[in-house]
Design a protein around this nucleic acid. Structure first.
Lengths: 250, 250
DNA sequence: CGCCGTGTGTGCGCTGCCGAACAGACGGCG
DNA sequence: CGCCGTCTGTTCGGCAGCGCACACACGGCG
């Protein structure tokens, strides 16, 4: 994919829909731009497997990717998620080349792919890019440990509210294409637990759903029903990366 | 504290008791050595507060530090721990200067302190030090997400076994100076839950304890009683930092 | 249109953990 | 030695979430 001056290679798609790329100074952005390939990320696609060596990193624009830890038993739980505020593949520049977690597309969409060695080269220059990436990594670690605390102390209903808000923050609309089963897998709980919590939220008028679709009606009600974890993660992201701004208000 | 050739400033204490410092090439080590101050880390001391700006990093030698997340409710849970295999204060070079977590001394001991700006200067050189620090950070993130999974799926008894093993790995002896209450706080569970699990382990002959002391008798029994989480974290540390070797066998 | 796969609702009994309360036992200190 | 604070053992009711089982209902497809 070539970048010709004044010509947008794919109308409607632009690398700076990714907030990390958008936060780069022009010179650094333009150094990378010719090497960014637009890729489709279909629902359920596994972007990387536990222990697999990474060849590329991905800057999602409209897609959302779940970082999942899969236990020996087969159960799994989301430990963090990556949307257009970040990038997928931090272990490439952290030096490990792989992690014990998997990355699965949770919301279908698009993203830009960059070859590992090019990211590494840019990272080694020590400019804005490396600063952004390190700060983003710290924000991702915040997600992880907050998930730990949330798993320990909070109810399924609180966690469902948090999860819906986190997902909504990265989506243009209020509609998630999701079954209860998929949400349950993300949170690492039973499907019935989600059905029960979602039913409660629906009766309260906060959400409405039908077979695989969830529409958020009252964002504020979810915010009231969730635990502190949502706000902590969000605030920390904004502290670390003030240049990265979610479109929605808190 | 000056480092004169052939003179060990404090007999019995040496910076390369910290495995990260020990893994440095001689030139880099010697650049830092004159600026490393031996400090005492007494049990319960808070090395940093959530949100507090860090001035120093610490390379523990005999001490163990808990990274705790404290909820609004006051309950807390350990999200990772740092011993002589690592360093305390990654947010200093990650760019955030602080984190929402607290760091509390879990096992009293010693460590070496280094001024933040000196660590940053060394980190910016992009030599072995920055590589080690980034890899260590990835290992720390592994601890965090594994804690998330463990909190979700495993019983108190499994978690207690894990916690004892992790602590033991960083200790010269088999004795931990710990009350059930302190362990409960680290795991974010009730004190009674620990009493019950510890009683079970004692009846099985795996450990023995009396008022504030826990002695591990059968390390293998703990390994058998714990979940996969212990092995995953340990294996990942060794993959990322082969130069860092725990004294004990798995 | 009717079928059937796939979501969703609901009802068990069970278990692991919580909150609270209290009895006893250790062990440092005066 | 005896006291008392602190740590440990145990009990009880309660509940959130689990595993299982099954009824139902949507909606795409032939």
């Amino acid at each position: 994919m070539q970048s010709l001056p004044g010509v947008n290679p794919k109308p409607g798609h632009n690398p700076n829909q990714n907030l990390l790329l958008a936060a780069l100074p022009t010179t650094e952005f333009e150094r990378l731009a010719p090497h960014l390939d637009l890729v489709v990320m279909p629902l359920g696609e596994c972007m990387y497997e536990p222990g697999g060596k990474l060849q590329h990193v991905y800057f999602p624009t409209t897609a959302i990717i779940s970082l999942l830890y899969v236990l020996e038993s087969g159960s799994s739980t989301e430990i963090a998620s990556v949307g257009n505020e970040g990038l997928l593949g931090i272990s490439l520049f952290m030096g490990g080349d792989s992690t014990p977690s998997a990355a699965v597309v949770q919301t279908a969409g698009y993203g830009y792919r960059l070859a590992g060695e090019l990211l590494l080269a840019e990272f080694s220059r020590g400019g804005s890019m490396s600063n952004l990436l390190l700060r983003y990594t710290q924000a991702l670690a915040t997600q992880m440990f907050q998930t730990a605390a949330c798993n320990r102390f909070h109810t399924i209903e609180q966690q469902l509210c948090r999860w819906l808000l986190v997902t909504l923050d990265r989506l243009p609309s209020n509609d998630l294409i999701m079954t209860h089963e998929q949400v349950a897998n993300a949170l690492g709980v039973r499907r019935e637990g989600i059905t029960e919590a979602a039913g409660k939220l629906q009766r309260a008028g906060s959400i409405s759903y039908r077979r695989g679709h969830i529409a958020v009606l009252e964002r504020a009600a979810l915010a009231a029903g969730t635990c502190e974890c949502y706000a902590v993660v969000r605030k920390e992201l904004q502290r670390l990366l003030p240049a990265v701004r979610y479109p929605r208000a808190i």
